[in-house]
Design a protein around this nucleic acid. Structure first.
Lengths: 66, 66
DNA sequence: TTTATATGACAAGCACCCTTTACATGGAGA
DNA sequence: TCTCCATGTAAAGGGTGCTTGTCATATAAA
């Protein structure tokens, strides 16, 4: 599933470590999400949505493009 | 995490099996979600949202109640 | 050059998501 | 009663989410 994590993190000028701290996950988890290794759990997706003040659907794209 | 699956399924008058078929998961998975055994994966949460035409946040409640 | 920060990646381990198979119960209807 | 459907639950197994620890590389600064 595609996501806008890297883009959103960039807007804040945060490092992966800083984002990880705010989400209470490891830096490796943030890195894995950004590089598309796997999708977050639903609770983590909620945390991400709250942090960026966006709906989950505005951050993650479940539909394979076109 | 709380969810409105049983309520939404009830509105359609569907059995757990019927909902499971529409979501491409097993009946046991639907039952586990409704009885709060575990949360769905993010892709399954997206499927559920699309099926009911609701945002994920309108179906699942991440916040422990007040 | 040396040091520090940022990122990418890998492995091992644990817990969770979802499966299939199976069994038990309750209600509706023949 | 007998049968069927709906629901709840359990166990075993595979795949995934997340952890800690570690290593490698690149960039920037002193």
């Amino acid at each position: 599933m595609k996501n806008r994590l890297r883009e959103l993190r960039g807007e804040l000028g945060w490092s992966q470590q800083a984002l990880a701290d705010h989400l209470d996950v490891s830096r490796q988890t943030v890195n894995a999400l950004e590089t598309g290794k796997y999708d977050p759990s639903l609770p983590l997706a909620f945390k991400i949505g709250r942090l960026f003040e966006l709906k989950i659907e505005e951050i993650f794209d479940d539909e394979p493009e076109a």
